[in-house]
Design a protein around this nucleic acid. Structure first.
Length: 280
DNA sequence: ATGACGTCCTGCCTGC
DNA sequence: TGCAGGCAGGACGTCA
């Protein structure tokens, strides 16, 4: 699933491909994925606009258009973005268009938003518009890889929470951009059990956890994300961070550090993997 | 305010 | 073989 490193990879690859291009057409194949405004207004709003920039905030991908308009994508679990030759979008059923929900036609190629499970969304907002479904976007914590996301900031957030640390890490107001994969990995590297209550973590543990979060996110970006099922890069290639996972997707396998079997459990209704030997 | 939990949605996997 | 049912899971709404 696209978390911070996956969305950052998509952003980097997309930015050099589409910046400066003009949007010629818009085909909505499934209305549900347009979060705001309505489908017609959405199309009218982007056609003939030039793309100025591609940026990212947490798991949101932002395409800035002229006239202070922003296209904001959230890929949720299975969403993907790809660029394909416009000639291909006219063919009946090319593999790349399986599950295509939105096709944005550029000058010579098309940006395709695929989303098998139809949970992902795209929003078009002007200036300071704040549509309902996009609440989370305006309530994110600092970026975990930014200098502002320092020990003091992190400690304050963790100390006042009584929920399980895994759930707290998944909270986007606490740890923007972190999802199930990187939460499990960070907790492993910090030697902390996912069910621990956040406010019971010792100062050293909070510090270790912060360092682990930054490290796994950074490494995730360096390896172009984690492909365990749906996630693909713009060109359809896989990420590489799955080769560096210690717990995620490794249930039943021996821990790479201590040899004990990685356990699969549920924390706050989320599947969670940890090593009973390494994580206390 | 906070934590727990149900809901959305559909492809895919499992078991009968 | 085919079908039903369960599962996955990020963000948001609801409830206590």
């Amino acid at each position: 699933m696209p978390e911070l490193p996956e969305v950052e990879t998509i952003r980097r690859e997309l930015k050099c491909r589409i910046t400066g291009k003009r949007i010629n057409g818009c085909r909505i194949l499934r209305k549900d994925i347009i979060g705001y405004p309505g489908p017609d207004e959405f199309c009218r709003g982007i056609i003939d606009k030039r793309i100025l920039d591609v940026s990212r905030r947490a798991k949101y991908l932002i395409i800035t258009l002229e006239n202070d308009k922003r296209l904001i994508f959230h890929l949720r679990l299975s969403g993907s973005l790809s660029i394909i030759d416009s000639a291909k979008t006219d063919k009946r059923n090319p593999e790349e268009l399986k599950f295509a929900r939105l096709i944005i036609e550029l000058e010579d190629e098309s940006l395709v938003f695929c989303e098998p499970r139809v949970l992902g969304r795209v929003y078009l907002i002007k200036n300071d518009e704040r549509p309902k479904g996009l609440k989370g976007f305006f309530n994110l914590s600092y970026e975990p890889l930014s200098p502002e996301y320092d020990f003091l900031y992190f400690k304050e957030k963790i100390k006042k929470r009584k929920a399980k640390i895994k759930s707290v890490l998944l909270d986007q107001m606490t740890c923007a951009g972190v999802g199930n994969i990187y939460a499990d990995e960070a907790l492993f590297h910090a030697n902390i059990r996912p069910i621990r209550r956040a406010n019971t973590l010792k100062t050293e543990e909070i510090f270790k956890l912060l360092m682990a979060i930054k490290r796994v996110l950074k490494k995730g970006i360096e390896e172009c994300g984690t492909t365990v099922s749906d996630y693909r890069r713009i060109n359809g290639r896989k990420g590489n961070f799955q080769n560096f996972l210690y717990v995620y997707n490794r249930e039943g396998k021996p821990c790479k550090k201590c040899g004990r079997m990685i356990t699969l459990t549920k924390v706050g209704n989320r599947s969670t993997r940890y090593c009973p030997g390494c994580q206390k």
